[in-house]
Design a protein around this nucleic acid. Structure first.
Length: 409
DNA sequence: AGTCCACAGGAAGGGCAGGCGA
DNA sequence: TCGCCTGCCCTTCCTGTGGACT
């Protein structure tokens, strides 16, 4: 970052821009390092591709395939594999004049699956209907979805990604309806593929839902460091200009990601950001030192982005936490945070929330990975949450700088 | 063994905004 | 316009609880 400033002062901005344009770029195709990119092959997932393909075979004869449930931690290729298999399936079907339609829903996306209403509305919209964001009775939205679904022909495969997020929010009733919908459909066969990061997710499901949803189950194990390295190597060959990436860079990214449950997405992020860091610092090639910086930057950016996008009240609570906790391993309790928050509200002329609500917001911040909160009992001195910050002093300082403009008093 | 603290967290519902059909 | 329905954010009221203290 500092080097960047020096760079500008040493040459004119014109020179900088021209330099950037004339220099051989580090990236030749950066898109291939983002999670939205679908590669032509999915390495190290042959077994799963095969299994899923076999399960979905009946669709090619216009018969309903079994519902499938797919488990695996983040970045184990669940979504990628599913999309890949379905793409191929649809291709084959089209060649043989069969109709297979797929609908993909990611429940982690905001405004898609906060409620059953939203979820159904999103599905209906995917089928070309327009549904208002609020206002209709839920069963009417269900009817709209049902009708537009039944207008189709052949097999429809619905992929519900991060299904655990949706069920946690709205319960499993809708899944029951969804898996039973076939009884009423005249023209279409619907089958559901549920994808979850949470391995013990089905334990919480109603037995009826569980049996109908997981007619078939697939498990995606994490990638090991060697597999990750191969994946990165292949992508790096397309993403970077020849010779612009030093030996050991992909290995280092793979090793770092393998430490965190073999997350390929993280490995790709690290590699991409390492390239960006090298580019920004004006270096010719990506080296291991850039990976180290990338690792720091990926974490920092994520936390700061989350903090910035919080509503005012949550920001005030985070501010209360930051003024209470300045060092990495310091701890505080819900009551102390609340008192501090009340003081801040007074100074900032903000209507304070109740302790109950603050308690909920603290849980949300815990889920977002901004804080670590653990319920502890201090015996006679009550039961409470012990809260510590989930980031370094460096990030603490950056967030405080940001808050200077937010809470000026 | 019983008490008691400081909350956690469930349940119910209020109030608002957005939207529908009659 | 009105009655009704939704989501969302919040409050109020409440019960539950682990373990130090008596």
């Amino acid at each position: 970052m500092e080097k960047w400033v020096v760079y500008i002062t040493q040459q004119t901005i014109q020179e900088l821009f021209n330099n950037y344009l004339t220099k051989q770029p580090i990236f030749s195709n950066k898109k291939t390092l983002t999670s939205s990119y679908t590669p032509e092959t999915v390495p190290h997932r042959d077994k799963q591709i095969n299994q899923l393909g076999r399960i979905l075979l009946p669709a090619l004869k216009s018969e309903r395939p079994s519902n499938v449930f797919i488990y695996g931690s983040t970045g184990t290729g669940k979504t990628l594999t599913t999309k890949y298999v379905l793409d191929e399936l649809v291709k084959t079907a089209t060649q043989n004049n069969n109709i297979i339609k797929t609908i993909y829903v990611n429940c982690k996306m905001k405004k898609v699956a906060d409620t059953e209403y939203r979820f159904l509305a999103y599905l209906a919209e995917k089928l070309g209907e327009t549904v208002p964001s609020t206002g209709l009775p839920t069963d009417q939205v269900y009817k709209i979805f049902f009708k537009s679904l039944d207008k189709l022909e052949g097999v429809v495969i619905l992929i519900v990604d991060e299904i655990d997020a949706l069920v946690n929010k709205v319960g499993d009733d809708f899944l029951y309806n969804l898996t039973r919908i076939n009884q009423d459909l005249a023209n279409v066969d619907l089958s559901v593929i549920g994808i979850s990061n949470n391995l013990s997710f089905t334990d919480y499901l109603d037995a009826r839902v569980k049996s109908s949803l997981s007619e078939e189950e697939l498990i995606f194990p994490p990638y090991n460091a060697v597999q990750l390295q191969e994946i990165l190597q292949k992508r790096a060959e397309i993403a970077f200009t020849n010779g612009k990436i030093n030996d050991g860079v992909t290995q280092k990214c793979a090793a770092l990601a393998a430490q965190e449950h073999g997350d390929a997405r993280r490995a790709l992020d690290l590699l991409r950001v390492a390239g960006e860091v090298a580019e920004r610092e004006g270096d010719e090639e990506v080296s291991i030192k850039h990976v180290d910086k990338a690792e720091e930057k990926v974490d920092t950016d994520r936390i700061i982005e989350v903090v910035k996008t919080q509503p005012k009240q949550s920001k005030a609570i985070i501010y209360a936490l930051l003024t209470k906790l300045t060092k990495e391993n310091e701890k505080t309790l819900t009551g102390d945070v609340f008192n501090n928050y009340m003081t801040i509200c007074k100074k900032a002329v903000l209507k304070p929330l109740t302790q109950r609500r603050v308690s909920d917001i603290l849980s949300e911040l815990d889920m977002l990975g901004i804080i670590n909160a653990k319920v502890i009992s201090n015996g006679r001195y009550g039961r409470t949450r012990e809260i510590s910050l989930a980031f370094s002093e460096d990030i603490h300082k950056k967030i405080m700088d940001f808050f200077k403009n937010e809470f000026y008093f």
